[in-house]
């Protein structure tokens, strides 16, 4: 039996996983007027978590990230539904959204839209479903 050595993979993973998390947050915030959005941001986040699983094994990453990915699916779906139903409070049709220009302390004047709250629900649902599928297949013997 050959002793396997994953030194290069482990060392680069500790650097690349953070870059992938940062890129996923950028993609999540850049949506709606540029390429990006909740779906592809969730896919990038699950790719980063999957890279950590491949480098460090199931036991170690389950200890670092004690998240039950099945619970993310109902949480994300209820966030999406609540933001959709919230438009009834203002007498608007289902799923209608609005935006405005606000002054933020560091970033200056920025456009903030309520569609990003719906995108947050999509993000959580995509992360939950992707990680559930991959971990279920991986733990099947």
């Amino acid at each position: 039996m050959i002793q396997h050595n994953d030194l290069i993979l482990r060392t680069t993973t500790s650097l690349i996983a953070f870059i992938l998390f940062g890129f996923s947050i950028y993609l999540f915030l850049a949506g709606h007027s540029a390429p990006g959005g909740g779906f592809i941001g969730g896919l990038m986040t699950s790719a980063a978590i999957l890279l950590m699983y491949m480098a460090y094994g199931n036991k170690a990453v389950s200890k670092i990230l004690p998240i039950n990915y099945r619970m993310l699916i109902p949480i994300g779906l209820s966030v999406a539904i609540l933001t959709s139903v919230g438009s009834f409070l203002f007498g608007q049709p289902f799923l209608s959204h609005t935006y405005g220009y606000f002054y933020l302390p560091v970033f200056g004047e920025k456009e903030l839209a309520t569609a990003v709250l719906f995108d947050l629900g999509v993000y959580l649902t995509v992360v939950g479903i992707t990680m559930t599928i991959i971990l279920t297949i991986a733990s099947d013997r």
């Binding site: 993609l27 790719a47 199931n58």
Partner: peptide, 27 residues
């Protein structure tokens, strides 16, 4: 994005060819 997904896919295939398992239960 294509480059990152390609990198992860290549690592997965290489690990499958070398070890036969992609996500180890316990290293």
């Amino acid at each position: 994005l294509i480059g990152i997904l390609l990198f992860i896919g290549t690592i997965a295939i290489a690990k499958f060819i070398e070890k036969g398992v992609i996500i180890d239960r316990d290293l």
